[in-house]
Write a protein that binds this DNA or RNA. Structure first.
Length: 419
RNA sequence: CGGAGUGUAGCGCAGUCUGGUAGCGCACCUGGUUUGGGACCAGGGGGUCGAAGGUUCGAGUCCUUUCACUCCGACCA
């Protein structure tokens, strides 16, 4: 795509309400835009591209693990929440409203009730189980204090999955599968994370694990072991003291984490309260054993930048970047530069490489500042060295520059981009 | 909900104390010059000063009420 035709409103100035690197750079890079009201954001073309790429990674890994994607109605009848008892428990985070006929509705902050309702209408036999259904769509929580941009918005994109089983043991098998699947997702996204024991909170259930992105800006206190994989949320490790040792013998360390995912062993809490049953092998009605699994997809955008940025801007990971390559023409009036850029652009696109071609009239400095701000991992500068037959390859992490001969450019790029 | 702030152009801000023609920087538009680290010159467009009420000859500025947002705290899959 050509920069000159895209809506990418980058700015030099930092918005006055942004303190977190991810918030600052996502706004300054023109990825997102504040709606003006607290905790609400618009995704501009670049932000939407990143969101879609992250969402795709999540979807691919879940589908590989046998999960099925659905999409539940965003507007949920409050009656369902009365059945489970959460209509009263959940409090003011729940945005409630009435339709023209005075029926009560809410905007889903999570969908245990709605998903149980879906399943109880269509699953009648143990032969249809197990089942793991998920969706990736908007959630709304009227947070007391939204902050940090996408990190804690009121409206956000979340993947929420729910599994249904004939036995507690089978649910635990799925729970373990989801833990492994989540690890693959976060690893593919290039994130530094830990799985920690957690408190089950309002969702309820018998056991849960959180997926914490390690970052100083995290809102959660967690303890981790650097020698093994152990980690725990401070909420469940209340007796922790500095200097305590892990079960493996190494010292434990207190650090900060961003909660990016949370999986729960629910049991029959919701299936029982919503009277959702199937007929088992003995022909007896039985409540489903359930697990529930969440990933904060829009929060991942913020998390990726919290872990990957420098004082100049974003540094996207390969699997999350809005483009595979950022191609800069230094001087748009130099016909040789433009010709080579067009040729390269078409050659790469023919290979399925998503290229951002900076064909703007601006000066070199302005284009480089935007390259650094946008944070595409790989870049090419076609500039004044073209006169000597050379162009420059850029690596955003560390801003590493390397000159290559024009004849070697395409082969070098194909190798670097893995195409 | 407690504490502290802030609302003036798309963004960042000054002006408010001491009432008297609505300002600056960035961004944007036009023309020209410029093109390896956020260019320059000239011209230009854009505002119910968060809202409502009041005082006054006159209110961005003073008074009252109200709304919104930000930060700290409590809260939070």
């Amino acid at each position: 795509m050509k920069f000159s035709q895209l809506l990418i409103p980058t700015t030099k100035e930092t918005p006055n309400d942004a303190t977190l690197a991810s918030h600052i750079y996502l706004i300054r890079g023109g990825f997102i835009q504040s709606v003006g009201d607290s905790g609400l954001y618009n995704y501009l073309p670049l932000g939407k591209k990143v969101l879609d790429r992250v969402r795709q990674v999540v979807k691919e890994e879940l589908d590989k693990a046998g999960c099925q994607e659905v999409s539940l109605s965003f507007v949920t009848p409050t009656a369902l929440w009365r059945e489970s008892g959460r209509a009263d428990e959940y409090g003011k985070e729940l945005l409630r409203f009435k339709d023209r006929k005075e029926n009560d509705y809410l905007l889903s902050p999570t969908n245990e009730e709605a998903m149980v309702n879906l399943v109880r209408q269509s699953v009648k036999s143990y032969k249809q189980l197990p089942l793991n259904l998920y969706q990736i769509n908007l959630k709304f929580r009227d947070e007391i204090r939204p902050r940090f941009g996408l990190m804690r918005g009121r409206e956000f994109l979340m993947k929420d999955g729910y599994s249904f089983h004939v036995s507690f043991e089978d649910m635990q098998r799925e729970f373990a599968l989801m833990e492994e699947t989540y690890k693959r997702i976060f690893t593919r996204l290039g994130l530094n994370f830990r799985v920690v024991d957690a408190d089950s909170g309002q969702i309820g259930g018998s056991g849960s694990k959180e997926f914490m992105l390690l970052a100083d800006s995290g809102e959660d206190d967690i303890i981790v072991c650097d020698a093994c994989e152990y980690g725990a949320n401070i909420e469940v490790a209340e007796d922790f003291k500095v200097g305590d040792l892990c079960a493996c013998g190494a010292p434990l360390r207190l650090t900060k984490g961003i909660e990016a995912g949370h999986i729960f062993q629910l049991g029959t809490k919701y299936s029982a309260s919503l009277n959702a049953t199937f007929l088992n092998e003995q022909g007896k009605a039985q409540a489903y054993e359930m697990g529930t699994y969440g990933i904060g997809v829009s929060r991942l955008l913020a998390g990726i930048i919290e872990q990957n940025h420098d004082e100049r801007g974003c540094i996207w990971t390969d699997s999350s970047s809005p483009f595979d390559l950022h191609l800069i023409v230094s001087n748009i009036k130099d016909e040789a530069q433009v010709a080579l850029a067009e040729e390269l652009y078409e050659a790469l696109r023919a290979k399925g490489v998503d290229v951002l071609l900076d064909d703007r009239k601006d000066r070199f400095g302005a284009k480089m500042k935007d390259y650094e701000l946008l944070g595409v991992p790989h870049g090419v500068v076609i500039g004044k060295n073209l006169a000597e037959g050379r162009v420059e390859l850029l690596q955003r992490a560390g801003m590493i520059k390397e000159e290559v001969a024009v004849e070697e450019l395409i082969a070098t790029l194909f190798a670097r981009l893995g195409v």
